[in-house]
């Protein structure tokens, strides 16, 4: 099967029922996407399919063909940070950091749809992403910060 991930085509031989999460992590070594619950409750595994945020733990490999898959590795890199990631760093958001890939993927999808998210928009977009360290106030600040920067850009 062919998967297009972050603009690169990968050939994968695996059960079409295998969740995309484990294809990314164990078959392709893209470990930025995290396993948290396996049942779509925590958001740590969030990726984009054609720009839409989905839980990769509930996405069948077979259903991920023919769409553009974006993972945290495709948002930006330490050498070339996305605006959103820079806002995350400037606001010193992460603590343990395990949930942050998923948080950033949900936030990126939100900001792709609007550069002026309301508090309610942020709540709605982010409620599916758990953080046990309680970084929510800084996540909120980073999203607002990134939104302002994107408006200026």
């Amino acid at each position: 099967m062919k998967l297009v991930i972050n603009g690169t085509t990968h050939e994968v031989t695996a059960d079409p029922d295998m969740p995309l999460l484990w294809v990314l992590r164990d078959e392709l070594g893209l470990t930025g996407t995290k396993y948290g619950c396996g049942v779509g409750q925590c958001g740590a595994c969030t990726v984009h399919l054609d720009g839409q945020p989905v839980r990769s733990c509930l996405t069948r490999l077979g259903d991920a063909q023919g769409v553009a898959i974006t993972t945290i590795e495709g948002i930006g890199t330490p050498e070339k940070l996305a605006v959103l990631q820079q806002a995350w760093i400037d606001n010193q958001v992460a603590q343990c950091g395990y949930c942050q890939s998923g948080q950033i993927m949900s936030a990126a999808a939100l900001l792709a749809g609007t550069t002026t998210p309301s508090e309610a928009d942020i709540d709605a977009a982010m409620a599916g992403n758990l953080c046990r360290c309680g970084t929510y106030p800084r996540i909120r600040a980073a999203i607002q910060d990134a939104a302002r920067r994107l408006q200026r850009a």
């Binding site: 995290k34 330490p78 958001v93 950091g97 942050q100």
Partner: peptide
């Protein structure tokens, strides 16, 4: 650890 944890490049045990 902030850049690594904002880019999915921080290596956790898993």
């Amino acid at each position: 650890d902030m850049v690594a944890k904002s880019t999915g490049t921080a290596a956790f045990g898993i």
